[in-house]
Amino acid sequence: MRVLLASRNAKKLAELRRILAPALPELEVVGLDDVTPYPEVPESGATFADNALIKAREGFQQTGLPTVADDSGLTVDALNGMPGVLSARWAGAHGDDEANLRLVLDQLGDVPDERLGAAFACAVAYVYEAGEIVTDGRMTGRLVRQPRGSNGFGYDPIFVPDGYEQTSAELEPSDKDEISHRGRALRALAEQLAAPSPTINPTRPAR
């Protein structure tokens, strides 16, 4: 069974394959680069779940393949929960990880270290003929002022999960999968898909 991940992020595709394979070995996960190109809709939702559903619905409509999409981001306590759904374009250009990371650090320049609490949040949507499934995950921790590590992407190099001294980008991928926001949301999805009667929501418009 082929499933589309509505993303061109190679690291995210590898992560999805790692997490879903043990529970659903029959799935072949492909990315947007593996299907006929189609116009991608803007991520205009107000929440992570809204944006995940927008992308998953569009992928299913355009390709006919069951489609998984996620939206995730960094929420910083001292920034009142921002950048949130704007995480990927916090510095203006979508997907400029270095610029986004540096802007967050600049904005926290006068904030004491003890107030650098943060969390990663993720929503995963799965859209197929029977309806829709939405799951979520969260990873709490704190920020550091100097990027460390090369195993992650986005804000991983400045995020230290609770209970760890390494940043998310210093953790081995398998260790990160166990605790990450996306790992938790994807495992919840895998459990739903493997269940005899998954909890399916009827198709509804995103806000």
Rank of each mutant, 00 (worst) to 15 (best):
R89I: 12
I19W: 01
S174I: 09
N100L: 03
L189G: 02
A10M: 02
Y155K: 15
A119L: 10
A206M: 01
Y155P: 15
A195M: 02
A6R: 08
P161Y: 02
V104Y: 00
P112G: 13
P37G: 09
A130F: 04
R18A: 12
G154L: 04
G163M: 00
T36V: 13
R207H: 00
E28I: 00
P39K: 06
P22D: 00
M82E: 15
V134G: 10
A123P: 10
R204P: 00
Y128C: 15
Y38A: 10
L32H: 13
A46M: 03
A185Q: 14
S197A: 14
P196R: 01
G141S: 13
R2E: 15
A206T: 02
P22N: 00
F120C: 11
G73I: 07
S87E: 09
R182F: 05
V111M: 11
Y38L: 04
E40D: 14
G59R: 03
L171H: 12
F48Y: 14
R18W: 03
R115E: 15
A49D: 06
L74D: 03
L4F: 07
R145M: 08
Q146W: 06
A49W: 07
I200R: 09
S7T: 15
S174F: 03
F153C: 06
P147C: 09
A10K: 03
L101R: 15
P83N: 11
E98V: 15
A23P: 12
L20R: 05
T47C: 00
D70F: 09
A123L: 06
I54F: 05
A91M: 02
D177Y: 04
E15P: 01
P25E: 08
V104P: 00
A195F: 02
S44Y: 07
T135R: 07
L74A: 05
F48A: 07
M139F: 05
I179K: 03
P83R: 08
G84V: 12
V111A: 05
T67M: 12
Y164G: 02
T199M: 06
A185Y: 04
V41D: 05
C122K: 10
V127A: 05
A118D: 12
I19V: 15
D50H: 02
S168L: 14
E26F: 05
L32M: 10
P112R: 06
F48H: 08
A93E: 15
R18P: 08
